[in-house]
Amino acid sequence: MRPSDLLRPAVFIAALLPLARLVWLGWHDDLTANPFEFVTRSTGTWALVFLCLSLSMTPAKRLTGLTQWIKYRRMLGLYSFFYAVLHFTLWFWVDHTLDVQAMWLDVLERPFIAAGFTAFVLLIPLAATSTKGMMRRLGHNWVRLHRLVYVIAIAAILHYWWHKAGKNDFGTVGIYAGVVTWLLGIRLWWAWRDAWRRRAGRPG
């Protein structure tokens, strides 16, 4: 068994630690005075963290020249979806008592909710088409479809940013916005440079 074979399960288990922490804290009645708010915010933050990690794999590959990074992209993306499902479910369940109409009103009334909702809904087709079989079947369309992840990242940042806007409290969300800007910016930069090189007829 090679070390890299162990790394995958290790990452898989590590990605469950944020959930394990919440369960542990809940068990010890230590989820702050407002458990609902704490758990909702925690799962939302972790959904964004895993989204950023998933988006980091391609730049990591390009910058280090190691292809192994790509093996973790899907798992990290699915964990982002996993925490997003928890985040969404809590909101739908506790805030709206599973009332679909009340949920829609909230989505339509508040841009901050609309942004988060958009990010979550767009994650669904990506998670659903994350298997190897779907990749094969969709061919180049798979690549196109999965470019939605950039829209999702921007929507997630907007959701978080607007949530903090009323309190002018941009410390933490500013860091995430910087990370996402860099992750998307470096792709744009590479795409632009590659296109320019192709036009110039030089090898990339």
Binding site: D29, L31, F36, V39, L90
Partner: peptide
């Protein structure tokens, strides 16, 4: 959300 309401078995009271 009434702080501290529920708790224990009811983690997220209505």
């Amino acid at each position: 959300q009434r702080i501290g309401e529920g708790g224990g078995s009811v983690l997220f009271p209505p």
